[in-house]
């Protein structure tokens, strides 16, 4: 997971408090609701220059920090991963 990823998510997680955000952190438990998930999606897409396909935009993708990161990874160009 990209070291900067928690910082991208932080503004949408009002119950995260000072706790460390890990791959297992559950996004909804930390305050993400369905109305905000679109804003979070835009922020993530801007930060990583990707576009998540419609098929990935389910509850499972937005379940945990790790599952959202895995979705981003699945669409990132290979060249970027190597850099």
């Amino acid at each position: 997971m990209d070291a900067n990823f928690p910082a991208v998510l932080q503004p949408f997680l009002k119950y995260a408090g000072g706790q460390e955000i890990t791959g297992e952190s559950r996004l909804r438990d930390l305050g993400l609701d369905s109305m905000q998930s679109i804003q979070l999606l835009f922020a993530v897409e801007d930060a990583y220059h990707v576009s998540l396909p419609d098929e990935l935009l389910t509850d499972d993708t937005f379940a945990t920090v790790g599952s959202l990161w895995a979705a981003i990874e699945s669409v990132r160009p290979a060249a970027q991963e190597a850099s």
């Binding site: 369905s34 998930s37 679109i38 999606l41 419609d54 935009l57």
Partner: peptide, 10 residues
């Protein structure tokens, strides 16, 4: 409101 958001996801 919910459907507006959902429309943006599809």
């Amino acid at each position: 409101l919910a459907n507006g958001t959902l429309s943006l996801l599809d």
